[in-house]
Design a protein around this nucleic acid. Sequence first.
DNA 1: TCCAACTAGTTTCAAATGTAACTTGTTTGC
DNA 2: GCAAACAAGTTACATTTGAAACTAGTTGGA
Lengths: 169, 169
Amino acid sequence: MKPHIPSGPAASRRKDAALRLSRFLPYRLSVLSNTVSREFARIYEGEFGLTLWQWRVMAVLGETDGLTASEIVSRTAMDKVVVSSAVAGLRADGRLVRKASRADRRALTLSLSADGRALYHSLVPRILTFETHWLSSLSTQEVETLIALMDKLAGAISPARPLWDKDED
Amino acid sequence: MKPHIPSGPAASRRKDAALRLSRFLPYRLSVLSNTVSREFARIYEGEFGLTLWQWRVMAVLGETDGLTASEIVSRTAMDKVVVSSAVAGLRADGRLVRKASRADRRALTLSLSADGRALYHSLVPRILTFETHWLSSLSTQEVETLIALMDKLAGAISPARPLWDKDED
DNA sequence: TCCAACTAGTTTCAAATGTAACTTGTTTGC
DNA sequence: GCAAACAAGTTACATTTGAAACTAGTTGGA
């Protein structure tokens, strides 16, 4: 069977709503996000031996100590298996401790250990410095615009559940 | 050693450059990108049985037929193993054919088969419609702004190599 | 009080990744 | 015109991942 390869004016002028990958937003988002993640990973992976998920768990607990695993799941869009294994790794490295919740004996509240907190406090400035450096090509106003646009996109793709906390100061 | 747990005014007011995950751009990018990818995947995965990478290879070839695998690698930031296995899958399903390149007998040029092209042409409108629907919460101007900001961020994170083709019309 | 339905967290297992090594073919320097 | 270095693409393997099943504990009726 002869393939119908569009040719002639219509095809060469990209009529009939052609897809241009370099303009396709999901594609750009994915490439940008992966590249950014890899760059940041060099900090917490290479120098501190953390995986992305371990770092993310630490970041959540650094902000709000004493959460349970399922609270972490609900506020980070991480899978519960991923949280479970990140916690196991952090515990094995002595960076995190858990204790039974009195209220619910299934639940375990998680806290950074002394080591974990020390690690957190040496990591955060490095991370923020790198972020600042990365964002320095944008004006403050542009960063605000970007955040606002991402909020809109997040709301449009996931109307039911917010992808991240609302950001009231 | 006593852990230095910040407390008091400085800590509770988030002094000393605290990290707020919900404001942290790599985090937001990652969550947004993954959510968006999953939503789009429902189209090409669920209904057409394609993986993300198979779809991406098809999207590239739909735009520019007859590329080799390594040309796809260089213009999409995909890994060569990933391209190789996506191509194998597409070939097994009869959606793509390859033929030896006369110039270099190691290289194989890739083209969508008749089936592949038909699939591509039924998929693209679905994808673009969904993208349009998603982006409908933004004005045309806002989309342009977003694209421009992402360009800047991409340039800042990867100065050496552009993450996607420059977009001259 | 007992049972069914539900939730927290872990384990298991199959599939998806990415790194490194490998095969085949090409280029370069002599 | 031949060996060494290099490039295209595949294979092998170790690691990561995610879905589903599982254990343990809780809740809400009747």
